[in-house]
């Protein structure tokens, strides 16, 4: 099978990987690079579990062709903590009990990271909009909204 070389920046580190033409960014992150923090949910851009940042913008990695990330910057949940030290947004999620089963958490954290970078002090409505593409079936969303609010006030 023909493969193509994808060079891109993954969590600020240069990365190169041989991939098939029609692989999605999610396929490459999980199956080729074994970065399994990014979750595969619906696979059709509806649940947001696979959210990563592409050049700082939240995208569903299941509907980005991996080769479109050529030379671009991709950030995943693995890039948030510094070694063993969680980012303060991750810490807020823990303090506000914003994690239950955890499956939506990576995507929520990335949507929230994208938001706070563009808008460090969002209103509650802006927070709700920013995570409106991320489904959570456990928390009822309020703890997640509170965690993001808490982070925006730190």
């Amino acid at each position: 099978m023909t493969t193509f070389t994808l060079h891109f920046w993954l969590n600020n580190q240069p990365e190169s990987v041989e991939i098939p033409l029609t692989a999605t960014l999610l396929d490459v992150l999980r199956d080729e690079l074994h970065m399994t923090g990014t979750k595969r949910g619906c696979g059709i851009g509806e649940c947001g579990a696979c959210t990563v940042l592409l050049n700082g913008q939240a995208v569903n990695s299941c509907t980005v062709l991996a080769l479109q990330a050529q030379g671009q910057k991709v950030e995943t949940v693995e890039g948030l903590a510094k070694g063993e030290e969680l980012s303060s947004l991750q810490q807020s999620f823990i303090e506000e009990h914003a994690v239950q089963c955890g499956f939506c958490t990576s995507g929520m954290l990335m949507s929230a990271t994208g938001l706070l970078r563009q808008n460090p002090h969002p209103s509650e409505k802006e927070i709700r909009t920013a995570i409106s593409g991320n489904l959570c079936r456990c928390t009822g969303y309020m703890p997640i909204i509170k965690a993001i609010e808490k982070e925006s006030k730190r």
């Binding site: 851009g45 509806e46 947001g48 959210t51 592409l54 913008q57 939240a58 995208v59 569903n60 509907t63 980005v64 949507s111 994208g114 909009t129 920013a130 409106s132 593409g133 991320n134």
Partner: peptide
């Protein structure tokens, strides 16, 4: 349209 992720792309 869609969600922020879809609107970004």
């Amino acid at each position: 349209v869609g969600s922020p992720q879809i609107r970004n792309r």
